[in-house]
């Protein structure tokens, strides 16, 4: 579904060139939940922006379902992004003058798509905000605002959900709610998710953790299916 091949990304500031990604090879299968971890400046958010088509790599290829992003114009990438990608950010990025319902349906209006009220209600129920549709963002807690942002990111049924530090502004309990919500979309609806986080607790909810360090992949760890009894005896030993 996502293929990143030998990708580098440089940023120029005058004569100074900073290489943020140094030859990244990485892929995500359909229905996978992958967490990208690493310290600040390790390149993890830059990779997320490249996958989301918000920028293009300096060298290398990025494919979404076999379609190369780096050869597309900005306008073409925007069309792909609106169709295939949902974004969730650390600071929610809700529109303050719009209600919960209007925020969630905003991407459909922006893309001149018809709103199906039943689908909106179903999504509101999934994010446990059924009674909040007429509220404004400032009337909600941080965790509730992030749930609105998740619903907004999924309203157009994107193939891929990209989440950049989705629990970065939340305490552990609220983080847990958000991560359980993302896990339920992944497990029950097969949603493909790529999440950037610096938090091991958040990353543990994924199927696979990819660790970034200084612009390269340091290591990748995949969860393996284990027999529950064996699994217990290993932890209890």
């Amino acid at each position: 579904m996502i293929k990143v091949a030998d990708v580098t990304k440089e940023f120029k500031n005058g004569k100074e060139v900073t290489t943020v990604l140094k030859g990244i090879d990485f892929s995500v299968k359909e229905g996978e939940f992958v967490a990208i971890m690493g310290p600040s400046g390790s390149g993890k958010s830059t990779l997320l922006q490249l996958i989301g088509g918000m920028d293009i790599p300096s060298t290398g290829r990025i494919e979404l379902d076999g379609e190369e992003l780096q050869t597309k114009s900005e306008k073409q990438r925007t069309i792909i992004r609106r169709k295939d990608i949902g974004f969730v950010f650390q600071n929610y990025q809700l529109l303050p003058t719009l209600t919960v319902y209007e925020n969630i349906t905003f991407p459909l209006h922006a893309d001149r798509q018809k709103v199906n009220p039943d689908e909106v209600q179903e999504l509101l129920k999934a994010v446990a905000l059924t009674d909040y549709e007429k509220r404004f963002p400032h009337e909600l807690s941080g965790g509730q605002q992030q749930r609105v942002a998740i619903a907004r990111a999924l309203i157009h049924k994107p193939a891929i959900l990209l989440a950049d530090e989705p629990t970065g502004n939340l305490d552990r309990e609220r983080s847990s709610d958000i991560l359980d919500l993302l896990s339920s979309f992944h497990q029950e609806r097969g949603q493909t998710i790529v999440m950037v986080t610096h938090d091991m607790f958040a990353a543990g909810h994924a199927d696979r953790i990819v660790l970034f360090k200084d612009g390269v992949i340091e290591t990748e760890v995949q969860r393996e299916d284990e027999d529950y009894a064996e699994f217990l005896s290993r932890f209890m030993a």
Binding site: D180, F201, A203, V221, R223, E226, F235
Partner: peptide, 22 residues
């Protein structure tokens, strides 16, 4: 590195265990 990988795998498994308990 090998120790870190083992611990990360444990994080993945224990988180799954926690979700099953929930």
């Amino acid at each position: 590195q090998a120790q870190k990988q083992t611990m990360i795998k444990d994080v993945l498994h224990l988180t799954q265990m926690k979700q099953q308990m929930n």
